[in-house]
Computed example of a mutant assay.
Amino acid sequence: MAFQLPIYVEPNFDKEPFVSAPDAGICKVEAEGVAPPGYHALSIYPEYFKVNSQWSLVRESRMDCVPVVRNEGIIEAVEFRNLHVGDKVIVGRSEDGRYGIYLHATPFAMPEESGDVFSFRTGRSRETAYSRDYDNLYELMRYERDHGYIIWVLGPAVIFDHDSKKALSELIEHGYAHALLSGNAMATHDLEGSMKRTALGQDIYTQEQRPLGHYHHLDLINTVLQYGSIEKFIEEENINDGVMYSAIKKGIPVILAGSIRDDGPLPTVIGNVYDAQDAMRACTKKATTVIALATQLHTIATGNITPCYVNREGRIRPVYFYSIDVSEFAVNKLRDRGSLSVTPIVTNVQDFLVHLRNNLVP
């Protein structure tokens, strides 16, 4: 069966308590970057606010932001650091609709679950069978390639192996990626693998250590810095494979967020954490599917700025979020955000990528 988006079910605002509810409270910002007392904090779920006697859905919602009322009653999600004096912030922490604020926790029509109170193996662990999850993901990816916006959140482990590096490159080349979010390490070791066939000095196919291999990533960074850009390095060194090569060739955004652990770093790595957050949010606000691979910190960061829904072409639809890691703790870290937004798969990310390539790439 071909993939079909679930139907968004809007609250019935013609019923109580919505009809009798007053407009949501509003207070103005009095100091730059400081929300007024009693501010309302947004979640990953759709939230409606009654402004000028009309219920409105917040635009491009993001968790841990505050709702700000703009002209004509438009409501925007704004980070604390981006609040300015005079901004009209919605205040109030009752979310059941009685006071002009409603959090819609069940927005999409879902199939009925078993009525059994007790059942085995309801969690997600290394013992879970993920066959159905893979099948669902294949169908989702085929749909999203042409109708959605797929973001990959990548840790360096995805390119430590020749086969997974090649698999992800082919997925990018065949349209199964619209943006990449990662850090300096992934890009560095990917380019190292394309230039020297190693990652951190280890052969990406045989896993053998190369003599003086611990210099390889530093030599790679130094060479790219000499050229001044990753694009120029790829051109001058005749690089013709790899994740970075495929992404640049395809013309998709690659956001590399810096870290205190970085060597170098490479050109285009964003060193200012708030600039990196803004760049990531520019992508995640368009996301319809997010696939996070073996990078706990980047996964949490991306999860915190990605809502469970998006308004695309006038239609509200879910954002699918997959977290893949060999560690149960890592993949379940985000599951606490709600079952609508995260599907954890406990597996080796190299095997995961090869499975996707084998089922999606002709």
Rank of each mutant, 00 (worst) to 15 (best):
E47G: 00
E47C: 04
Y48I: 03
F49W: 11
K50H: 03
Q54P: 02
S56Q: 10
L57C: 01
V58N: 02
R59E: 12
S61F: 00
M63L: 14
M63I: 12
D64N: 15
D64M: 13
P67Q: 00
R70D: 15
R70M: 15
N71F: 09
G73I: 13
G73S: 08
G73T: 11
G73A: 11
I74T: 06
I75H: 13
I75W: 14
E76D: 13
R81S: 10
N82Q: 14
L83Y: 09
L83R: 08
H84F: 02
H84S: 04
H84I: 01
V85E: 08
V85G: 06
G86A: 09
D87Y: 05
D87E: 13
V89H: 02
V89W: 09
V91E: 03
G92W: 03
G92M: 03
R93G: 03
S94K: 15
D96W: 11
D96E: 14
R98W: 11
R98N: 10
G100K: 03
I101S: 01
Y102P: 01
Y102H: 10
Y102M: 07
L103P: 04
H104Q: 10
H104W: 12
A105D: 07
T106D: 08
F108A: 07
M110H: 09
M110G: 00
M110Q: 11
E113N: 06
S114Y: 04
G115M: 05
D116A: 11
D116S: 06
F120A: 11
F120D: 13
G123V: 06
R124C: 07
E127K: 09
Y130G: 06
D133N: 07
Y134V: 15
D135N: 10
D135P: 03
L137N: 12
E139N: 13
M141P: 13
R142E: 15
Y143A: 00
Y143E: 00
E144V: 10
R145Y: 12
D146T: 15
G148C: 01
G148K: 01
Y149R: 10
Y149F: 15
I150H: 07
I150Y: 08
V153Q: 00
L154T: 08
L154W: 02
L154N: 09
L154P: 01
L154F: 00
L154Q: 07
L154D: 05
G155W: 00
A157W: 00
A157S: 11
I159F: 01
F160V: 03
F160S: 13
D161Q: 05
H162M: 02
S164Q: 02
L168S: 01
S169D: 03
S169Y: 10
E170T: 07
I172R: 13
I172V: 08
I172N: 04
I172D: 14
E173W: 07
E173I: 08
H174Y: 05
G175A: 00
G175D: 01
Y176N: 15
H178T: 08
H178L: 02
H178V: 04
A179C: 14
L180N: 01
L181G: 04
S182Y: 02
G183Y: 11
G183A: 07
N184R: 06
N184Q: 06
